[in-house]
Structure formats: structure tokens, C-alpha cells
């Protein structure tokens, strides 16, 4: 059956339900949110239709600047750490037997699907005084007495790396699986050690993949909303946490919506950049 353009109304019929669902429950909510970001806030958590820029003007405060700077810095750190660990690991994984790869993929998927609540709970237990790793250090005599390792920046960073690492591996996996094995073989024949071959041949050949993955993980980390609350102190809150806090606890929907719009713009700009890099990368590959 050849693919044909739709002609009659009946040809369009299958599109009706998905189109209605996506427009009514994604496009309209998204537009509602943008509209609310221009509304005027009233006392007691209500808001009235209006067109004011007050909510966006609040971005100019030092507090918001601090939260934004911290969120971006944290997401950059998570992305860099995850790709530095994930890239060599995924490369080694693609060299393992198919069976081993499948077992690893099942485990990685299981960790990736874990709720942020559960990841936060698991790490807060691991970092706690009563059940934490410091007990292990005490047992082997490296520490005098167990202590809590949270709340703190280290705990937030560890939790977020734990959450983003499986994602990083799954984003890297397809490109690394398709990597031409003769590249490294050639380098080996010419006398390069495996490590040297990896850094001088594989990493440069995958430069575009690495940059695209860094951006994907960065956007993923920007979306983290619970770990900073569970594992950190208020000064470790990110933009996503602040949006939730303004929407639910401060009942300031217009301001929350304005921040969300801002977060969309950052994310879209970065995703667009990824597509651009992916596009040039493919051209490069074809040439």
C-alpha cells in the first residue's frame, strides 16, 4: 500500500481524537499558563485577567538572580559529571556481550523510572546518621562516630547525578552502539594504547554527540524539583522548586507562571541548539 496524501474527510478521521486531545489538554493549558503569567495577582491567592508585566519585573530582583544562577550552575555541574562518567561507561557497555548489555539496560531503566521521591528518600537514608554510609566508615575504623551528611550541597549534587546518570547513558547508548569499530582498530594497529585510542579517536569522533548529550542532561537537571527540597537547605532550591513553591504554597500563580514561561524559553533555546548540533553532526557524518 503506497503512502498517499489524505483526500476525503474520512482519511482525516484517525487524526481527530489525537489532535483534539493534544490541543485541548496540552496547547490550551500551555496557553492558559502564558496568559496567567500576565495576570494581576489579588490578595488571598486569586488572580484577575489583566495585562501587567509585574510578574516578569520580579525577575530583576537579587533573590531571583541568585536562584537562577544557582539552578544553572547546578545543572551544568550535573551535566558535566554525568557525561564524564556516562560516556566512558556507555562506551565500555557497548563492547560487552549482548546479554550483559540487556541486563544493564533493564537495571538502568528501572533506576531511571524511579520517582524523585524515592531517590530522595533513598539518598537521605544513605546519608543519615542512623542508617548511612558513615556507619560503614566507623565499622572499618576510618571515622570516630557516624554523622549525617545532609542537608547540604554535596547531597543535592549526588542525588541529582544519581537521577540523571541513567538518562545520560540511555541518550548516549544509540550513538555509541553505532560507532564504527574499525576506527579504534585502525588506531590500535598503528600502535595506540586502548586508552589513547579512546581519547584521541573515539572522543573527537563523538564530539557532537557529547555536546548534544550535555545539553539534554542540562535540561533534564533543570527539571529536578524534589531532590533540592529533600536533600538540601532553602539556599539550594532551584527554579523548578521555586515555581512549585510559588504555585502551591505562596498561591502566587501569576509569578509561578511567569517563571515557568522563562524556564520554557531557556529549555527551548537549548533544545533548539541540540537540534542544530545534531543537524550539522549528521551532515558531517554523511560527508
Amino acid at each position: 500500500m503506497r503512502r498517499e496524501p489524505p483526500r476525503t474527510l474520512a482519511d482525516y478521521a484517525p487524526l481527530a481524537f489525537p489532535a483534539i486531545m493534544l490541543v485541548v489538554f496540552f496547547v490550551i493549558p500551555f496557553s492558559t499558563m502564558i496568559a496567567v503569567s500576565f495576570f494581576r495577582r489579588q490578595q488571598g491567592g486569586f488572580y484577575t485577567p489583566d495585562f501587567v508585566l509585574d510578574n516578569y519585573a520580579r525577575f530583576l530582583s537579587a533573590f531571583f538572580g541568585g536562584v537562577l544562577g544557582f539552578s544553572l550552575m547546578l545543572a551544568v555541574m550535573v551535566a558535566v559529571i554525568c557525561v564524564s562518567i556516562g560516556f566512558p561507561f556507555t562506551y565500555l557497555l557497548t563492547k560487552a556481550s549482548r546479554r550483559a548489555q540487556i541486563v544493564w539496560l533493564v537495571c538502568i531503566l528501572s533506576v531511571l523510572s524511579l520517582s524523585e521521591v524515592i531517590i530522595g528518600f533513598a539518598w537521605s537514608t544513605l546519608f543519615s546518621r542512623t542508617a548511612g554510609i558513615t556507619n560503614l566508615l566507623v565499622a572499618v575504623g576510618l571515622m570516630a562516630e557516624p554523622r549525617a551528611l545532609l542537608p547540604g550541597f554535596g547531597a543535592v549534587l549526588t542525588g541529582m547525578v544519581y537521577q540523571a546518570l541513567p538518562y545520560t547513558i540511555l541518550v548516549l547508548y544509540p550513538s555509541l552502539v553505532r560507532l564504527d569499530p574499525t576506527l579504534l582498530e585502525a588506531a590500535r594497529t598503528l600502535g595506540a594504547s586502548p586508552l589513547r585510542g579512546f581519547f584521541n579517536i573515539i572522543v573527537p569522533a563523538q564530539r557532537n554527540t557529547i555536546v548534544a548529550t550535555l545539553i539534554m542532561v542540562f535540561v533534564f537537571a533543570l527539571g529536578c524539583y524534589l531532590l533540592p527540597q529533600i536533600l538540601g537547605r532553602p539556599q539550594h532550591w532551584t527554579l523548578s522548586v521555586l515555581i512549585t513553591d510559588q504555585a502551591i504554597y505562596q498561591s502566587n500563580m501569576p509569578f509561578a507562571a511567569a517563571m515557568a514561561v522563562f524556564l520554557v524559553l531557556i529549555s527551548l533555546a537549548l533544545v533548539g541548539l541540540t537540534l542544530l548540533i545534531g543537524g550539522t553532526g549528521r551532515q558531517h557524518h554523511d560527508a
Binding site: 496524501p5 487524526l15 489538554f25 493549558p29 492558559t32 527539571g223 507562571a257 515557568a260 520554557v264
Partner: peptide, 29 residues
């Protein structure tokens, strides 16, 4: 129908954007 790919894009968008955005959009809606 190349234009229909717009719906594919709409379907993928909530997954790529930070989740708090979809959540807030649905909450206001």
C-alpha cells in the same frame, strides 16, 4: 501529510520540557 508532524512534536514536547511546566500548565487549565 508533513504538516501532521506538528502533532508528533506536541506529543513529544511534554516529555522534553521540564516536568514542572506541564504540571503548572495543567494546574492553571
Amino acid at each position: 501529510a508533513p504538516w501532521a508532524n506538528v502533532f508528533r512534536l506536541l506529543g513529544v514536547a511534554p516529555f522534553i520540557l521540564p516536568p514542572v511546566i506541564t504540571a503548572l500548565g495543567l494546574l492553571t487549565f
